[in-house]
């Protein structure tokens, strides 16, 4: 029965990876830039919520702190694009990548200064509670992660396919020039995508921190999420989630079934899978055969 628990906890981890990967892909599709600070956005999102709700800090109600943290992270994403990236227009991708890496360092430093470098847990109403089905014991936190991810993914799907702004975001990412010709304010749309990705990072961070402790270097998890995004094809939102789930499942399963003395295999398994996917399907599992116009 612990096999079911293993799967559920792997899926829960995978959801967090998937949500961070979703943030990568959102920004990549909209702006063709890779935000290497996405993992740190996640970490900051967790700390912001923690700062709002933990008794040691502001002690706000958890259900108020969550949307507030999402709004704050959305604002941070918007402002970074509006205040910094927009002025880099026409610069090479490399300089933008370096800028996002630098942003990651700044965020880690800021988090350490404000909330210290010690691991802290997010105080949630459901911490430590279990659900029992027959012989299976599942943590509510893990179930919550899976449910929230499903709901968030569903809402994003509806947003992108049914709302004018969502369709415009897709349009701007498929053909920026045409969007510009049609009077779609492409720059503002891109800032809004950064905002969306900031809000998603906040959710990922809150979920991550509700399950275990968080510290300023937790953002390095972003590397695994990056692998997840690449496995999924880097241009596909469902692909990012699936990539995250694959990595989430492979980690505990490979640790469990590794031969004696090879337990460390779990740590390289995500990258081994990434390698295999890239060799056999260079575009990722969900690659779309579409050339992007500038």
């Amino acid at each position: 029965m612990d096999f079911v628990q293993l799967i559920v906890s792997g899926l829960a981890n995978g959801c967090v990876y998937g949500l961070i990967a979703l943030g990568f892909v959102l920004i990549y599709k909209a702006t063709e830039a890779v935000n290497f600070a996405q993992g740190d956005f996640m970490m900051i999102g967790a700390f912001v919520c923690l700062g709002l709700t933990n008794a040691d800090f502001m002690g706000l109600n958890f259900w108020l702190a969550v949307p507030l943290a999402m709004v704050i992270m959305a604002a941070l994403g918007y402002l970074f694009d509006w205040g910094v990236l927009r002025h880099m227009f026409g610069q090479s991708q490399v300089s933008i990548v370096i800028l996002t890496i630098a942003l990651g360092f700044i965020l880690r430093f800021a988090a350490g200064t404000i909330w210290s470098h010690e691991p802290v847990s997010l105080e949630t109403p459901f911490a430590g509670q279990d659900l029992r089905f027959g012989g299976v014991v599942l943590g509510i936190d893990e179930i919550a992660i899976i449910v929230v991810t499903v709901v968030l993914t569903g809402s994003l799907f509806v947003f992108f396919s049914k709302t004018k702004l969502g369709v415009a975001m897709q349009a701007a990412s498929q053909n920026q020039l045409a969007a510009y010709y049609m009077g779609i304010p492409v720059k503002r749309i891109q800032s809004l995508v950064w905002a969306l990705s900031g809000a998603v990072a906040a959710v990922a961070g809150i979920l991550f921190a509700s399950k275990g402790a968080i510290d300023p270097s937790s953002g390095l998890l972003g590397i695994k999420a990056f692998a997840a995004a690449a496995i999924g094809g880097f241009g596909s939102l469902p692909g990012a989630l699936v990539g995250g789930l694959i990595i989430g499942l492979v980690e505990p399963l490979s640790a469990r079934f590794a031969p004696d003395g090879f337990a460390g295999i779990a740590r390289i398994a995500p990258y081994a899978i990434l390698l295999i996917v890239l060799i056999f399907r260079p575009g990722g599992i969900f690659s779309q055969t579409q050339k992007k116009k500038v």
Binding site: Q170, A171, N175, A179, M182, K293
Partner: peptide, 25 residues
């Protein structure tokens, strides 16, 4: 409105969504 050279449609959106985007403003 400017209908650009070489068509420049939104390839992955449906025809109806492309039409709808024309009315964005």
């Amino acid at each position: 409105v400017h209908v650009p050279e070489g068509r420049e449609i939104f390839p992955l959106l449906t025809v109806a969504e492309n039409i709808a985007m024309g009315a964005y403003t």
